[in-house]
């Protein structure tokens, strides 16, 4: 399949595996993709919520 026709999630999984040093068996890819798809859809719910720049994360470190 030409690179510009490739499913962007599959491209992302390829790149992610490379960056993280993971070897992903081709047989696992459909399920990895399905899980990533769900995560990104839920992530969009989170990302779409507007919060001011000054709003801190819950995980605030105390020195």
């Amino acid at each position: 399949m030409p690179a510009d026709d490739k499913d962007p999630l599959l491209t992302a999984i390829d790149a992610g595996a490379h960056m993280l040093g993971l070897t992903i068996d081709p047989a696992w890819i459909p399920t990895v993709r399905a899980n990533l798809d769900v995560s990104l859809r839920l992530g969009k719910l989170v990302d779409d919520f507007q919060l001011p720049d000054e709003h801190e994360p819950a995980s605030t470190f105390k020195a």
Partner: peptide
């Protein structure tokens, strides 16, 4: 496994 791999790739 496949959920954990996907999780590691979330931006």
């Amino acid at each position: 496994r496949d959920r954990l791999i996907a999780g590691a790739m979330i931006p």
